[in-house]
Write a protein that binds this DNA or RNA. Structure first.
Length: 258
DNA sequence: ATGTCGGAATTATTCCGA
């Protein structure tokens, strides 16, 4: 079973690209973030024709998350409880094998911006939600764009960026709280010393220079970790395909022996 | 080069967010 996460940066602009990737990689469950589309504009039938059931929690212009699945999943959660006003950023579903949550965490802009404490509060809300509604002793995958670099290995320039947005102790503490609760970073667990990124700025040839960040994650509980075969940061899909423009994020997927 | 995108508001240009 192949599970994936991908911040697509606008579904209308990315639909053909996403379909190309689905056909090529054949994932079973996908968490998508940054749809930037109203729910009633979501191209449900296009995904159904490609073989996927869809669950969507979205809004006009910004944010928006969805779950695509080969087998229909049961919708469990739409929106992070207590944090709904910060946008459509969480959706959760369940299959017979596992619970699957996908999130688009707030960016925060900069440490001195009023969005920064809101970002931290959003993570605190996520932590409280997990503690209340989920168990580290069950099969759970939490994936998405966390908008933070957990360690110096996850950023191209810790020296310059340390203490700045995505690189602060406060954000890293929030990430560590998720780990302490019972989630593992599936990529880092499999590849402790690899330096690979999942996001590169559109500007300044950052992708070509490999000036990236690893901010897109698949986190899993112990029951998931035991089933991991491989974890792939699918860098090839940060490159143009047939003239189609890419997201600034690339997909990340895990193969599980279910 | 504050260098690129996607989307909204408004109608080809500017703004906002990332």
């Amino acid at each position: 079973m192949r599970l994936a996460t991908w911040n697509i940066n606008g579904l209308r602009a990315r639909l053909d690209f996403v379909l190309h990737w689905l056909k090529s990689r054949q994932p079973d469950i996908v968490g998508l973030q940054e749809l930037k589309i109203e729910e009633d504009q979501f191209p449900r039938r296009v995904f159904e024709a490609a073989g996927y059931s869809t669950l969507v929690h979205s809004q006009k212009a910004w944010n928006g998350v969805a779950i695509l699945s080969r087998d229909p999943m049961e919708l469990v959660t739409e929106g992070l409880p207590g944090q709904e006003k910060y946008g459509a950023r969480l959706i959760g579903a369940r299959s017979k094998e596992l619970s699957f949550l996908t999130v688009y965490c707030p960016n925060g802009k900069s440490v001195d911006h009023s969005d920064f404490p809101l970002k931290l509060a959003w993570f605190d809300g996520l932590q409280a939600f997990l503690e209340k509604e989920h168990s580290p002793h069950k099969a759970l995958v939490l994936c998405g764009d966390l908008n933070l670099c957990p360690s110096p290995k996850d950023t191209w320039n810790e020296k310059v960026s340390k203490g700045k947005i995505f690189h602060t102790p406060e954000e890293r503490e929030r990430f560590q709280s998720l780990i302490d609760w019972g989630l593992m970073d599936l990529y880092r667990n499999k590849y402790p010393d690899e330096i690979k990124y999942s996001w590169w700025d559109y500007r300044g040839g950052a992708f070509h220079l490999n000036q990236g960040l690893r901010i897109d994650f698949l986190l899993g509980t112990e029951a998931i970790v035991q089933r991991v075969q491989d974890v792939v940061i699918d860098r090839d899909y940060r490159k143009k395909k047939d003239g189609m423009t890419t997201s600034d994020h690339t997909p990340v997927y895990v193969d599980l022996c279910f």
